[in-house]
């Protein structure tokens, strides 16, 4: 049941790790506000952006994700006080490293989305697929079997 993956009619699949307290709640707000965005991203709820291991991100690419998003509380507003500060360092290093490996940076993004930013959630969910659509399906790091 995956998103259509034919090259000519390509719809990117995006795995979005959203922290429970801010970004997931921001997604809920986008819903309750009846905002509209394309269905490319599927959200995996995590307690905090600091829970997102690079292993999960690589696993998503391996299993066929065309893009991965990590969304957390704005720096300074972490529900767990400092989690997103750790995430910011970890994921900055990972993003540059994936770029070094040849993965286009557009395919791995981190955004800070607060519980009150339903609009921003919808915006990110709209813009990220657009950018990835332009790049085409991801074959890098993908399990070819």
């Amino acid at each position: 049941m995956s998103v259509a993956r034919e090259e000519h009619n390509f719809e990117p699949l995006i795995v979005a790790f959203c922290c429970n307290w801010c970004s997931y709640a921001g997604g809920d707000l986008a819903g309750t506000s009846r905002m509209s965005y394309p269905p490319n991203a599927r959200v995996i709820r995590v307690p905090c952006s600091s829970r997102v291991s690079p292993n999960f991100i690589l696993r998503a690419f391996q299993r066929g994700a065309d893009g991965v998003l990590v969304a957390g509380c704005h720096p300074g507003d972490c529900h767990y006080i400092t989690g997103n500060y750790h995430a910011r360092r970890r994921l900055s290093i990972l993003r540059r490293f994936l770029g070094f490996m040849g993965v286009e940076p557009e395919r791995f993004e981190v955004h800070w989305i607060s519980a009150s930013e339903g609009g921003k959630f919808a915006e990110v969910m709209t813009e990220m697929p657009e950018k990835i659509r332009a790049l085409g399906p991801n074959r890098k790091l993908r399990d070819a079997r």
């Binding site: 400092t82 500060y85 750790h86 910011r88 360092r89 900055s92 290093i93 993004e109």
Partner: peptide
């Protein structure tokens, strides 16, 4: 070690 600490005004390497 740099990846077990942070500064509140650390730069990030994301689009945002």
């Amino acid at each position: 070690a740099p990846l077990i600490t942070y500064k509140t005004d650390d730069p990030a390497a994301f689009t945002e």
